[in-house]
Design a binder for these strands. Structure first.
Length: 200
DNA sequence: CTACCGATTGACT
DNA sequence: GTCAATCGGTAGA
C-alpha cells in the first residue's frame, strides 16, 4: 500500500533514461475521492535538442511553457480535441518530457469505465488521450507538480523488477517528423500497449 | 475575424 | 488495414 512516490530527483536525469525507467511504475490519480491506478507500459521521450517533433522546438510560448519549467511537473497539451499527459525531465533549462502513452489498469477500474463510457479494459487506457480521460487528467494539471498529496503522482512498487530485455525500444507513434529516432519504450508483449502490433 | 494544424481516436472496409 | 471527425490553440488578414 505505502509504496514510495517518485520525487523530483527521479525526473532530473536524461529524458531517455527516465522514459525507460518509468516502464513498470504505477501511475496514480485521486480526484473527487476517486482513486485510479495503472502500471505504465508505454512511454515516449521528447528531446531537448535535435528533435523536430518536440513542442519545445522554437522556444517557450504560452502553450509549451511547462516543458521549460521544473522536472517532476506535468505538461498537459491538447491535440485533436483531446488531452495528453507528459512529465517534465532534466529541467530547468533543458526542455524535455516523457509522454505517458499507455498503462495497464490496476485499481479504480469502475471509475475508468464510467469516465470513458467504455466497458472493455483494453480500450480504457491504451493511448495517451484515453488514459487522460480514464485518470481525469485535463489542462488544469498543466504545470502542476506531481506528488502523493496532489491530483496525480507515480509510485514505485519494489516487487516489480523488469529485466532489461522486457523493455522494447521502437520509433514513436504518430510523429510526423524525426520518425527514425528510437524514443518509444514498451513493456514487451503487454496487451495494453497502444499502436500497431508490429511495434508492441 | 477566418484558416489551418495536430505527440488521436473510433468507425469502417 | 484505411480514413475522416474532432476542436483548442495559434497565426495571419
Amino acid at each position: 500500500m505505502a509504496h514510495d512516490a517518485l520525487d523530483a530527483a527521479f525526473f532530473q536525469h536524461d529524458v531517455r533514461r527516465v522514459a525507460r525507467a518509468l516502464i513498470g511504475k504505477t501511475l496514480v490519480s485521486r480526484w473527487n475521492q476517486q482513486r485510479v491506478s495503472g502500471m505504465i507500459v508505454e512511454t515516449e521521450a521528447y528531446l531537448p535538442r535535435g528533435d523536430s517533433a518536440s513542442h519545445a522546438l522554437g522556444g517557450p510560448n504560452r502553450k509549451n511553457a511547462s516543458m521549460f519549467g521544473p522536472a517532476g511537473h506535468a505538461y498537459v497539451y491538447t491535440i485533436h480535441a483531446r488531452h495528453c499527459f507528459n512529465i517534465v525531465t532534466q529541467n530547468p533549462g533543458i526542455p524535455s518530457a516523457v509522454l505517458i502513452r499507455a498503462v495497464e489498469p490496476l485499481g479504480g477500474i469502475g471509475w475508468m469505465q464510467t469516465r470513458r463510457n467504455q466497458e472493455k479494459r483494453e480500450l480504457l487506457t491504451t493511448g495517451p488521450a484515453r488514459l487522460c480521460e480514464a485518470f481525469a487528467i485535463g489542462r488544469q494539471l498543466d504545470g502542476v507538480r506531481l506528488g502523493r498529496r496532489r491530483h496525480i503522482w507515480i509510485e514505485h512498487d519494489p516487487d516489480i523488477r523488469l529485466a532489461a530485455k522486457a523493455i522494447r525500444k521502437t520509433e514513436r507513434i504518430g510523429v510526423t517528423s524525426a520518425q527514425r529516432l528510437q524514443l518509444r519504450f514498451v513493456l514487451r508483449g503487454n496487451r495494453f500497449v497502444s499502436g500497431p502490433r508490429s511495434l508492441g
